[in-house]
Amino acid sequence: MKVHINGKAGTVEPDQTIDEVRMQYCPEADITIRNCIISPPGHTRVAEGDALYFIRKGVAPDADNLEKLLYARQPDALTGRLKSARVGIVGAGGLGSVVAENLARAGVGKLVIADFDLIEPSNLNRQRFTVAQLGTPKVDALAENIRSFNPFTAVDAVHERITAENCRQIFSGCGIIAECLDSASEKAAIVTALRNHHPESFIVAASGLAGLGNGSSIKTVKATARLYIVGDMTSDADQGLGLFASRVGIAASMQAHVIIQLLTGVEPC
């Protein structure tokens, strides 16, 4: 009977229990995950096509095993689709740093992240950087952070101001591009340019995430066939509402979520 064990094809006897398979492949394992679910020790029988993961706590796996075990809580078929994806992110601030983290944790294979800016103290209330990274280009710090939790996501860090002209070449080959800028007019200009230069790509933009309005007022809207907007559409940072990690993060996580849905064939809305 064919199954997958720690991400590799394996064969088990038809009447074997999960515990018996564990004893055979990894008797020291503390955690058993079967088809994304943590399974208690027991005598459940393995079924054809099961994805089984046996994990030992306190032991660092080699790189090949780490890549497999990292995605044990995601369906294998979807992880494969995410790994082959190339996603662009315009801006590496409050939105972009969170979008990038979510996509890298899910195992998106390639991220092209572009931002001209250096990290300064007022970024730290919402952007996923550290005090030690102050003064560093945001794209380089983000690439470093991603390597620290998922070294299998390749990051193309572009330390440049994105313009209506250079976004054509920088994001070529990206099937999906996230707009993660701060200024309203730059958002409008870059979304227009991205739609023009990359008519086949999905654009996932954000608008309306400032202040302390309800998190649940942030929605995903399909504006056109290939343009999604996440936000409450009205809460404007230029009105002095302030920007908080919690609410900016909701919008950014929703942007990342739309991207993961699109990559795995789920209709976002």
Binding site: G91, G93, S185, S207, T224, T234, D236, D238, L243
Partner: peptide, 10 residues
């Protein structure tokens, strides 16, 4: 006509 009107923040 589709009009997407952006507000600031990110």
């Amino acid at each position: 006509i589709e009009i997407v009107s952006f507000v600031g923040g990110g």
